[in-house]
Design a protein around this nucleic acid. Structure first.
Lengths: 210, 210
DNA sequence: ACCGTTCGGTACAGATCGGTCTACATAGCT
DNA sequence: AGCTATGTAGACCGATCTGTACCGAACGGT
């Protein structure tokens, strides 16, 4: 994008432009409703080049999902300025503009558990749950695996519900999370144990997706 | 095929066959991956007849979603043999074969909040939450609206997660529900307040969908 | 400055989609 | 039986999708 308008930007970064356009279009329109023609036009890439980098649209979709990992994972969990408990709650402070977890959307749209993209979706969900479990362990939960899985379920529920209804469901999920966390941590937490509500008062967390 | 006693008109249940085939195919293959040709073949209906009953596929999809209401709503909530608390927990005993809440699937596949089917999806989700709220009130919850909304979110989360991962997530949701219910009911519930786990021991609830 | 490589633009092929229309079969009424 | 209305079977149309082929233009090494 450094080359100006009407950019005769030569091949370098074609792959990145394709993936960037995929993120935008798949998010805004869905996977099935985005054709390769439109995608190539947005990416300013010829179809020839597109099919040189990705042998098929399925492969592009798979790579599109795989690429989300590095973007999303470090969002909340690396914030050392927060206690583990605050980090767990911060995972629910998702901006309302965030559409729907792309992994859920892809799993529904592709409708094929054998699709390579579906495998990446499972990997991502598992990784998120593992991160939550790890943080739950830091927070002193008696059963970190259980708490991590529970919080992951809450995130997905809020994401799906936000999509179907228009109302924001993450505050509801955060309230549930607060109850679960307080019930799961025996007596002494690293900080005050009674926060009652999900909002920790810190700045919105710049998490890329849920 | 039987010549049903459906009345003087020759409406030999073509409309019902179409809707029945829709339920099966949309569930097994998804909406976008099911063509009208295949649908008519399964329903044993000519395309002419199909487009006589439904002016477009969009209208068929909307009616397919609208038809779920009477099938699903009475599943759990009308079981007078259970206490309100048991009814709330029974809502999480969903057979593993149940694929994905068709309303979530439709909202993702259609990808258009203005689609009439999306409106039915919102209506259904609102109705389910209302039923849960009503039952929560019977159970003596201090804030029935909040508990109903929370339980609805858990159901959707388990449904979405079951779809993306293969693992069954409803037991996890049921465990959360048990915690929330116990926290939401002040002191005296109509039955013993400590059931510990989500399984009430009753027979699996024949709920059609989540 | 030449030449090979690569990319953009685009026409095209093959398949499939939603939706329409015609030709033929059948059931009910009189 | 004959008439009429409705249903079936399926060809057909235009649009759209994925993926391929071709051609000219713009770079890079020498």
């Amino acid at each position: 994008m450094e080359k100006g308008p009407l950019g005769r930007r030569r091949g370098r970064g074609a792959r990145e432009r394709i993936l960037s356009a995929s993120q935008q279009l798949f998010r805004d329109q869905g996977i099935n409703r985005t054709g390769m023609d439109q995608l190539c036009a947005v990416a300013q890439v010829s179809k020839r080049t597109a099919y040189q980098h990705f042998t098929s649209k399925d492969e592009l979709v798979a790579e599109y999902l795989r690429r989300f990992d590095p973007d999303v994972m470090p969002g909340v969990f690396d914030r050392t300025d927060l206690t583990p408990r605050e980090r767990l709650l911060a995972a629910f402070e998702i901006p309302a503009s965030t559409p729907l977890c792309p992994y859920i959307a892809a799993a529904v749209e592709l409708h094929d558990p054998q699709h390579p993209a579906s495998q990446y979706a499972r990997d991502y969900k598992t990784a998120i749950a593992a991160r939550l479990t790890e943080t739950a362990r830091e927070a002193g939960a008696t059963n970190p695996e259980q708490l991590g899985e529970q919080l992951a379920l809450l995130i997905d529920g809020a994401s799906a519900r936000t999509r179907v209804l228009n109302s924001e469901s993450f505050p509801t999920a955060a309230a549930i999370a607060a109850v679960l966390i307080d019930n799961a941590i025996p007596a002494s937490s690293p900080r005050q144990p009674s926060d009652d509500r999900g909002t920790t008062g810190s700045a919105p967390v710049p998490v890329g997706a849920q």
